[in-house]
């Protein structure tokens, strides 16, 4: 006598893939999901194009050169991260605030598939959406930049252009770069990965704190406030600490010009991933242990 004997339709059972489908239905059936994604798209693309136009206009009229045109067009993601982070928090905290979590965990009492399902769905959707947004922001922004031209001479170094000497003596250069510009595609993927990471960090905070307000405060305290606090550290210490903070490490992959203030692109994303894994890991521990 087992439960299977009671349930002749043995096809009905909880599996990980079914938990993923369930999370997808939950994710897509809330208006807040599409509002957050819509706002993130609008901000990342809109600001990318707007900043490109402002910078292009300024450089064309006053002279000078933009060293990292790719990062310029991806600047909007610094604001879009708010919408994505909040969406990550809400994906789980909304279940706690409404009591839905009890229905969810009654259906999937092992709990782990819920956690994994949320991560899988969130990461897949946000990666796809923000990757498209990053491509559009880049292509749109570069198209706008290309409309502006500056006169001057590039100073070349082993890693590409290291400087620019403006003046009428030089040749005419278009400000925009193409998608084949060194590092541009990596930076576009880096922006999408950073967005996925911020959202998952929010999801992890939500699993840990279960409360929407608290988790949002924790997430952006960690991401946006820590770098400001680090500025109070003495110079030498500050330099060592700051580059390992989530915001600074996570956005290292969005630049095409390396800087001593940031880790190398993949190293930065790797450090950032550690924060995400830690938050989600603690989230899983408390999800398994705590009463729902």
């Amino acid at each position: 006598m087992t439960s299977i004997a009671m349930n002749p339709d043995a096809r009905l059972a909880v599996t990980q893939s079914r938990a993923v489908v369930s999370e997808w239905i939950k994710f897509r059936s809330l208006r807040s999901t599409w509002w957050s994604i819509g706002i993130a798209l609008l901000i990342s693309i809109g600001l990318g194009i707007l900043f490109s136009d402002l910078r292009g206009n300024d450089l064309a009229s006053h002279g000078g050169f933009e060293p990292d045109q790719t990062a310029l067009t991806l600047r909007g993601f610094y604001l879009a991260q708010l919408a994505v982070g909040v969406l990550g928090v809400l994906f789980i905290s909304g279940e706690y605030s409404t009591g839905m979590i009890r229905a969810t965990l009654s259906a999937v009492p092992k709990r782990v598939p819920v956690w994994a399902g949320k991560i899988a769905i969130f990461a897949a959707v946000i990666f796809a959406v923000t990757l498209v947004a990053a491509f559009i922001a880049f292509l749109g922004g570069q198209a706008v930049l290309s409309a502006y031209q500056v006169h001057g001479i590039f100073l070349s170094g082993p890693n590409g252009n290291i400087g620019f000497s403006p003046g009428s003596a030089g040749t005419v250069h278009s400000l925009g770069v193409s998608i084949s510009h060194p590092g541009s595609i990596r930076a576009i993927f880096g922006a999408a990965l950073y967005m996925v990471g911020i959202g998952l960090l929010g999801l992890g905070c939500g699993f840990i704190l279960r409360n929407t307000g608290g988790a949002i405060a924790a997430l952006f305290g960690l991401v946006l406030v820590l770098p400001l606090l680090a500025q109070a550290l003495p110079g030498s210490m500050q330099q060592h600490v700051t580059k390992y903070l989530p915001l600074i490490a996570g956005t290292a992959g969005m630049n095409t010009v390396s800087s001593t203030d940031q880790l190398a692109p993949w190293a930065g994303l790797g450090v950032f991933a550690l924060y995400v894994v830690a938050a989600l890991g603690i989230g899983l521990l408390v999800l398994r242990r705590r009463d729902a």
């Binding site: 096809r11 009905l12 059972a13 909880v14 599996t15 079914r18 938990a19 489908v21 369930s22 999370e23 239905i25 939950k26 059936s29 809330l30 208006r31 807040s32 909304g94 409404t98 229905a103 969810t104 259906a107 999937v108």
Partner: peptide
């Protein structure tokens, strides 16, 4: 924030 049908569809999906 979810409709009644989507609420049930999400729960139903966990079991197929």
């Amino acid at each position: 924030g979810r409709s009644a049908r989507n609420h049930l569809l999400a729960l139903a999906a966990t079991h197929g």
